[in-house]
Design a binder for these strands. Sequence first.
DNA 1: CGGTCTCCCTGACTGC
DNA 2: TGCAGTCAGGGAGACC
Length: 270
Amino acid sequence: MPELPEVETIRRQLLPELIGRRFVEAWGFDSPKFDSAPTATGARVDDISRRGKYLLIELEARRELVIHLGMTGVLRIRTDAEIAAQQDPYVRAWWRLDSGDVFEFRDVRRFGRVSVVAAGAYETMPTLHDLGPEPFDDQWTGADLYVALKRSKARVKTQLLSQRPVAGVGNIYADEALWRSEIHPARRSITKLQAERLRIAIRDVLEASLDNGGTTLRDYRTVEGGTGDNQYHLDCYGRAGEPCRRCGDELRSRVYDARTTTFCPTCQVN
DNA sequence: CGGTCTCCCTGACTGC
DNA sequence: TGCAGTCAGGGAGACC
Protein backbone atom coordinates (compact mmCIF):
# COMPACT_ATOMS: atom_id res chain seq x y z
CA MET A 1 0.00 0.00 0.00
CA PRO A 2 1.54 3.29 -1.01
CA GLU A 3 2.38 5.45 1.98
CA LEU A 4 4.61 8.52 2.09
CA PRO A 5 7.89 6.91 0.92
CA GLU A 6 6.17 5.17 -1.99
CA VAL A 7 4.31 8.29 -3.11
CA GLU A 8 7.48 10.37 -2.80
CA THR A 9 9.42 7.84 -4.88
CA ILE A 10 6.73 8.03 -7.55
CA ARG A 11 6.70 11.84 -7.41
CA ARG A 12 10.42 12.04 -8.06
CA GLN A 13 10.16 9.67 -11.00
CA LEU A 14 7.22 11.52 -12.53
CA LEU A 15 8.84 14.96 -12.35
CA PRO A 16 11.04 14.68 -15.47
CA GLU A 17 8.27 12.92 -17.38
CA LEU A 18 5.47 15.39 -16.76
CA ILE A 19 6.87 18.86 -16.06
CA GLY A 20 6.04 21.20 -18.94
CA ARG A 21 3.87 18.58 -20.65
CA ARG A 22 0.31 19.33 -21.60
CA PHE A 23 -2.66 16.96 -21.26
CA VAL A 24 -4.24 16.85 -24.72
CA GLU A 25 -6.89 14.18 -24.10
CA ALA A 26 -8.11 12.28 -21.05
CA TRP A 27 -10.51 9.67 -19.77
CA GLY A 28 -11.87 8.62 -16.38
CA PHE A 29 -13.64 5.45 -15.26
CA ASP A 30 -17.37 5.94 -14.75
CA SER A 31 -17.28 6.49 -11.00
CA PRO A 32 -17.16 9.65 -8.87
CA LYS A 33 -13.68 8.62 -7.79
CA PHE A 34 -12.25 8.88 -11.29
CA ASP A 35 -14.62 10.69 -13.60
CA SER A 36 -13.17 14.17 -13.05
CA ALA A 37 -9.93 13.16 -14.79
CA PRO A 38 -10.92 14.67 -18.17
CA THR A 39 -11.43 18.12 -16.63
CA ALA A 40 -7.63 18.45 -16.65
CA THR A 41 -7.61 18.24 -20.44
CA GLY A 42 -5.74 21.12 -22.04
CA ALA A 43 -3.75 22.00 -18.92
CA ARG A 44 0.03 22.13 -18.71
CA VAL A 45 1.86 20.53 -15.77
CA ASP A 46 3.86 23.15 -13.90
CA ASP A 47 5.09 21.10 -10.94
CA ILE A 48 4.45 17.99 -8.88
CA SER A 49 4.32 18.15 -5.11
CA ARG A 50 3.09 15.87 -2.37
CA ARG A 51 1.21 16.15 0.92
CA GLY A 52 1.21 12.95 2.96
CA LYS A 53 0.07 10.20 0.61
CA TYR A 54 -1.52 12.66 -1.81
CA LEU A 55 0.23 13.45 -5.08
CA LEU A 56 -0.48 17.01 -6.18
CA ILE A 57 0.07 17.60 -9.88
CA GLU A 58 0.11 21.35 -10.18
CA LEU A 59 -1.48 22.60 -13.37
CA GLU A 60 -1.42 26.00 -14.99
CA ALA A 61 -4.07 28.54 -13.93
CA ARG A 62 -3.73 27.50 -10.28
CA ARG A 63 -5.42 24.18 -10.59
CA GLU A 64 -4.35 20.80 -9.21
CA LEU A 65 -4.79 17.22 -10.24
CA VAL A 66 -4.93 15.41 -6.89
CA ILE A 67 -4.20 11.68 -6.97
CA HIS A 68 -4.50 9.24 -4.07
CA LEU A 69 -3.24 5.76 -4.88
CA GLY A 70 -5.38 3.96 -2.31
CA MET A 71 -4.33 0.36 -1.87
CA THR A 72 -3.42 -0.79 -5.34
CA GLY A 73 -2.79 2.38 -7.33
CA VAL A 74 0.03 2.46 -9.86
CA LEU A 75 1.09 5.40 -12.06
CA ARG A 76 2.97 4.81 -15.29
CA ILE A 77 3.59 6.21 -18.73
CA ARG A 78 3.05 4.03 -21.78
CA THR A 79 3.25 4.44 -25.53
CA ASP A 80 0.35 3.55 -27.82
CA ALA A 81 2.31 0.51 -28.98
CA GLU A 82 2.66 -0.71 -25.40
CA ILE A 83 -1.01 -0.10 -24.73
CA ALA A 84 -2.04 -1.97 -27.85
CA ALA A 85 0.26 -4.87 -26.96
CA GLN A 86 -1.15 -5.20 -23.47
CA GLN A 87 -4.79 -4.36 -22.80
CA ASP A 88 -5.35 -3.56 -19.15
CA PRO A 89 -8.89 -3.55 -17.72
CA TYR A 90 -7.71 -1.93 -14.49
CA VAL A 91 -6.68 1.45 -15.91
CA ARG A 92 -9.09 3.85 -14.13
CA ALA A 93 -7.92 7.13 -15.67
CA TRP A 94 -5.47 8.32 -18.30
CA TRP A 95 -4.16 11.57 -19.71
CA ARG A 96 -2.50 11.75 -23.12
CA LEU A 97 0.55 14.00 -23.12
CA ASP A 98 1.54 16.35 -25.92
CA SER A 99 4.50 14.01 -26.46
CA GLY A 100 2.01 11.34 -27.57
CA ASP A 101 2.63 9.06 -24.58
CA VAL A 102 -0.13 8.30 -22.10
CA PHE A 103 0.03 8.91 -18.35
CA GLU A 104 -2.03 6.11 -16.75
CA PHE A 105 -3.54 5.47 -13.34
CA ARG A 106 -4.04 1.75 -12.79
CA ASP A 107 -5.99 0.73 -9.69
CA VAL A 108 -7.29 -2.82 -9.37
CA ARG A 109 -9.38 -2.35 -6.23
CA ARG A 110 -10.52 1.21 -6.94
CA PHE A 111 -9.64 2.48 -3.48
CA GLY A 112 -7.73 5.28 -5.15
CA ARG A 113 -9.08 8.60 -6.26
CA VAL A 114 -8.55 11.41 -8.72
CA SER A 115 -9.75 14.96 -8.30
CA VAL A 116 -9.18 18.17 -10.25
CA VAL A 117 -9.61 21.24 -8.06
CA ALA A 118 -8.59 24.86 -7.73
CA ALA A 119 -5.19 24.95 -5.99
CA GLY A 120 -5.66 24.22 -2.30
CA ALA A 121 -9.42 23.72 -2.53
CA TYR A 122 -9.62 20.44 -0.67
CA GLU A 123 -13.13 20.71 0.83
CA THR A 124 -14.27 17.57 -0.96
CA MET A 125 -11.33 15.60 0.48
CA PRO A 126 -11.66 15.81 4.27
CA THR A 127 -8.49 13.89 5.07
CA LEU A 128 -6.37 16.10 2.80
CA HIS A 129 -8.15 19.20 4.05
CA ASP A 130 -7.29 18.42 7.67
CA LEU A 131 -3.96 16.74 7.02
CA GLY A 132 -1.31 16.89 9.73
CA PRO A 133 2.26 18.21 9.32
CA GLU A 134 4.81 16.67 7.00
CA PRO A 135 7.09 14.35 9.00
CA PHE A 136 10.24 15.64 7.26
CA ASP A 137 9.41 19.26 8.05
CA ASP A 138 12.13 20.59 10.39
CA GLN A 139 9.47 22.67 12.10
CA TRP A 140 7.64 19.53 13.26
CA THR A 141 8.51 18.70 16.87
CA GLY A 142 7.80 16.05 19.47
CA ALA A 143 5.82 18.69 21.34
CA ASP A 144 3.61 19.16 18.27
CA LEU A 145 2.99 15.43 18.10
CA TYR A 146 2.28 15.29 21.83
CA VAL A 147 -0.30 18.07 21.60
CA ALA A 148 -1.91 16.56 18.49
CA LEU A 149 -2.25 13.14 20.10
CA LYS A 150 -3.63 14.61 23.31
CA ARG A 151 -6.59 16.04 21.41
CA SER A 152 -8.14 12.61 20.95
CA LYS A 153 -8.83 9.60 23.12
CA ALA A 154 -8.56 7.14 20.24
CA ARG A 155 -5.74 4.59 20.23
CA VAL A 156 -2.38 6.02 19.18
CA LYS A 157 -2.21 3.63 16.22
CA THR A 158 -5.70 4.67 15.09
CA GLN A 159 -4.77 8.33 15.42
CA LEU A 160 -1.68 7.88 13.28
CA LEU A 161 -3.75 6.24 10.54
CA SER A 162 -6.17 9.20 10.62
CA GLN A 163 -3.41 11.39 9.07
CA ARG A 164 -4.16 14.20 11.51
CA PRO A 165 -1.24 14.09 13.97
CA VAL A 166 1.19 13.64 11.08
CA ALA A 167 0.82 13.10 7.33
CA GLY A 168 1.73 10.05 5.30
CA VAL A 169 1.87 7.23 7.85
CA GLY A 170 -0.14 4.11 6.97
CA ASN A 171 -0.40 0.65 8.49
CA ILE A 172 3.14 -0.50 7.69
CA TYR A 173 5.01 2.53 9.02
CA ALA A 174 2.68 3.01 11.98
CA ASP A 175 3.52 -0.50 13.18
CA GLU A 176 7.21 0.03 12.45
CA ALA A 177 7.41 3.39 14.23
CA LEU A 178 5.45 2.21 17.29
CA TRP A 179 7.68 -0.85 17.54
CA ARG A 180 10.82 1.24 17.23
CA SER A 181 9.67 3.73 19.86
CA GLU A 182 8.44 0.89 22.15
CA ILE A 183 4.91 2.25 22.37
CA HIS A 184 1.91 -0.09 22.55
CA PRO A 185 -0.41 0.61 19.59
CA ALA A 186 -3.55 0.46 21.75
CA ARG A 187 -2.43 3.19 24.17
CA ARG A 188 -4.79 6.15 24.34
CA SER A 189 -2.24 8.57 25.70
CA ILE A 190 1.52 8.82 25.67
CA THR A 191 4.08 10.94 27.53
CA LYS A 192 6.02 13.87 26.09
CA LEU A 193 9.13 11.73 26.08
CA GLN A 194 7.33 8.97 24.19
CA ALA A 195 5.99 11.52 21.72
CA GLU A 196 9.50 12.71 20.94
CA ARG A 197 10.70 9.12 20.53
CA LEU A 198 7.73 8.42 18.27
CA ARG A 199 8.43 11.50 16.15
CA ILE A 200 12.01 10.39 15.61
CA ALA A 201 10.92 6.83 14.88
CA ILE A 202 8.36 7.96 12.31
CA ARG A 203 10.92 10.11 10.55
CA ASP A 204 13.54 7.37 10.66
CA VAL A 205 11.34 4.55 9.33
CA LEU A 206 10.02 6.77 6.53
CA GLU A 207 13.50 7.96 5.62
CA ALA A 208 14.88 4.43 5.58
CA SER A 209 12.05 3.27 3.35
CA LEU A 210 12.55 6.21 1.01
CA ASP A 211 16.23 5.28 0.76
CA ASN A 212 15.12 1.74 -0.14
CA GLY A 213 12.66 2.93 -2.80
CA GLY A 214 9.58 2.03 -0.72
CA THR A 215 8.00 -1.20 0.48
CA THR A 216 6.56 -3.61 -2.11
CA LEU A 217 4.38 -6.23 -0.44
CA ARG A 218 2.11 -6.88 -3.36
CA ASP A 219 0.95 -4.07 -5.62
CA TYR A 220 3.28 -1.14 -5.16
CA ARG A 221 5.37 -0.39 -8.25
CA THR A 222 7.51 2.55 -9.23
CA VAL A 223 6.78 4.53 -12.39
CA GLU A 224 9.34 2.34 -14.17
CA GLY A 225 7.49 -0.78 -13.01
CA GLY A 226 10.13 -1.77 -10.46
CA THR A 227 9.63 -2.84 -6.86
CA GLY A 228 10.96 -1.25 -3.70
CA ASP A 229 13.38 -3.01 -1.35
CA ASN A 230 12.13 -1.90 2.04
CA GLN A 231 10.06 -5.06 2.59
CA TYR A 232 13.37 -6.76 3.45
CA HIS A 233 14.04 -4.23 6.20
CA LEU A 234 10.82 -4.38 8.23
CA ASP A 235 11.18 -5.15 11.94
CA CYS A 236 7.53 -5.55 12.87
CA TYR A 237 4.86 -5.28 10.16
CA GLY A 238 3.96 -8.70 8.79
CA ARG A 239 6.20 -10.53 11.28
CA ALA A 240 3.53 -11.80 13.71
CA GLY A 241 4.65 -15.09 15.25
CA GLU A 242 8.30 -14.29 14.59
CA PRO A 243 10.73 -13.21 17.32
CA CYS A 244 11.05 -9.56 18.27
CA ARG A 245 14.46 -8.35 17.13
CA ARG A 246 14.85 -6.44 20.38
CA CYS A 247 13.74 -8.84 23.12
CA GLY A 248 13.23 -12.17 21.33
CA ASP A 249 9.62 -12.62 22.38
CA GLU A 250 6.98 -13.51 19.83
CA LEU A 251 5.42 -10.62 17.91
CA ARG A 252 1.65 -10.64 18.11
CA SER A 253 -1.09 -9.65 15.68
CA ARG A 254 -4.34 -8.06 16.79
CA VAL A 255 -7.10 -6.09 15.15
CA TYR A 256 -7.61 -2.59 16.56
CA ASP A 257 -10.39 -0.49 15.06
CA ALA A 258 -10.64 -2.81 12.08
CA ARG A 259 -6.94 -2.58 11.25
CA THR A 260 -4.51 -5.46 11.62
CA THR A 261 -1.71 -4.44 13.96
CA THR A 262 1.54 -6.22 14.74
CA PHE A 263 3.47 -5.40 17.91
CA CYS A 264 5.71 -6.85 20.59
CA PRO A 265 3.64 -7.49 23.73
CA THR A 266 6.78 -7.38 25.86
CA CYS A 267 8.70 -4.29 24.84
CA GLN A 268 5.79 -2.17 23.61
CA VAL A 269 4.36 -1.17 26.96
CA ASN A 270 0.67 -0.62 27.47
C1' DC B 1 -18.82 16.34 18.11
C1' DG B 2 -16.04 12.38 18.38
C1' DG B 3 -15.03 7.51 18.71
C1' DT B 4 -16.04 3.43 16.29
C1' DC B 5 -17.89 0.67 12.66
C1' DT B 6 -19.10 -0.45 7.86
C1' DC B 7 -18.47 -0.27 3.27
C1' DC B 8 -16.22 -0.01 -1.04
C1' DC B 9 -13.36 -3.55 -4.32
C1' DT B 10 -11.08 -7.84 -6.19
C1' DG B 11 -6.91 -10.89 -6.34
C1' DA B 12 -4.69 -14.09 -3.40
C1' DC B 13 -4.94 -17.42 -0.28
C1' DT B 14 -7.07 -21.23 2.81
C1' DG B 15 -9.63 -25.24 3.65
C1' DC B 16 -12.53 -28.92 2.45
C1' DT C 1 -8.92 -29.52 -9.24
C1' DG C 2 -12.70 -26.61 -7.83
C1' DC C 3 -15.14 -23.70 -5.26
C1' DA C 4 -16.78 -21.09 -1.32
C1' DG C 5 -15.17 -18.34 2.28
C1' DT C 6 -11.86 -15.14 4.18
C1' DC C 7 -8.49 -11.60 4.17
C1' DA C 8 -6.08 -7.24 2.98
C1' DG C 9 -6.90 -1.98 3.96
C1' DG C 10 -7.32 4.10 3.09
C1' DG C 11 -10.64 6.93 3.57
C1' DA C 12 -15.63 8.47 3.39
C1' DG C 13 -19.58 8.43 5.69
C1' DA C 14 -22.95 6.35 8.89
C1' DC C 15 -24.11 5.54 13.46
C1' DC C 16 -24.73 6.21 18.40
